[in-house]
């Protein structure tokens, strides 16, 4: 790991009486896989929302590389190299799997020729390779609404990776899927991230997934960071186990 890719400094945000970020300071390093854990309502998704421009903090800043991206629009942040995958997959449900990725490729390359069909984009092979990486090549021509939840999650992540981001933020990439499916998704994901050399941050509730796949883990608690460090060290802390897992 070398160099800071994303740096959040002293982030504050509240929703009515609920404080979701109370002085959050966090660095994400180039090439790492950082897991964010914490109880429901601790402010994990809020952090992702701030980093991707969906929410504006009342105080503090987020820097990506050398640029301050605080309060920038999501599309501007995306163009700078931060992609996002959602807890509930955000896809174009009445389009085919491959079309979802091709639209991402068109956005990345800014290919807006009104006479060239989306199907004929030169990035088509690249997108098929990406689907292959996720084991989705066979379903490339299926409609999104025909896919099982696990595959939809993978397509959502593949769409984000089709943007060739520097940083990928994922909100519970394994929620709502079976245990077996969880590890399949994470194995494929980790391989795809390695192939593309993408730094990642993922919110996760499954400690087994965190132990296996994260380089570092940050523990959220009521709007602040309780601890940050390697998984074996952080998860060995009894207070973390008590506050996060409840044991």
């Amino acid at each position: 790991m070398s160099g800071t890719l994303l740096e959040a400094s002293n982030l504050h945000i509240s929703f009515g009486g609920v404080t979701a970020a109370d002085g959050i300071d966090l660095e994400v390093f180039n090439g790492e896989r950082l897991a964010i854990i914490g109880p429901n309502g601790a402010g994990k998704t809020t952090f992702l929302n701030i980093c991707t421009g969906y929410l504006t903090p009342s105080a503090g800043s987020v820097r990506f590389g050398r640029r301050d991206i605080t309060a920038m629009a999501p599309r501007a942040i995306t163009r700078m190299g931060i992609a996002r995958a959602f807890q509930t997959p955000q896809l174009f449900h009445d389009q085919r799997v491959i079309d979802n990725l091709l639209l991402a490729a068109a956005a990345r390359e800014r290919t807006w020729n009104p006479f060239r069909p989306l199907q004929d984009l030169p990035e088509r092979d690249e997108m098929l390779e990406l689907l292959e990486l996720f084991g989705l090549a066979e379903v490339s021509t299926q409609m999104i609404n025909e896919l099982p939840e696990g595959n939809r999650k993978l397509v959502d992540i593949a769409v984000a990776l089709a943007l060739r981001p520097q940083l990928l933020l994922m909100d519970e990439p394994t929620s709502g899927v079976s245990t077996l499916e969880k590890f399949r998704i994470m194995d494929l994901l980790v391989e795809a991230l390695a192939v593309q050399g993408v730094t990642s941050v993922f919110v996760e509730h499954d400690m087994e997934v965190v132990k296996r796949y994260a380089d570092r883990v940050a523990v959220w608690s009521a709007g602040h960071i309780q601890s940050v460090g390697p998984p074996d060290q952080v998860l060995a802390d009894p207070s973390v186990m008590r506050d996060v897992i409840g044991i």
């Binding site: 999501p74 599309r75 955000q90 896809l91 174009f92 389009q95 639209l103």
Partner: peptide, 16 residues
């Protein structure tokens, strides 16, 4: 077409 189905994802593709 994507405006009809999922404007959020469109924005997160960097498209206005």
């Amino acid at each position: 077409s994507a405006i009809r189905t999922n404007e959020t994802r469109l924005e997160y593709l960097g498209i206005s």
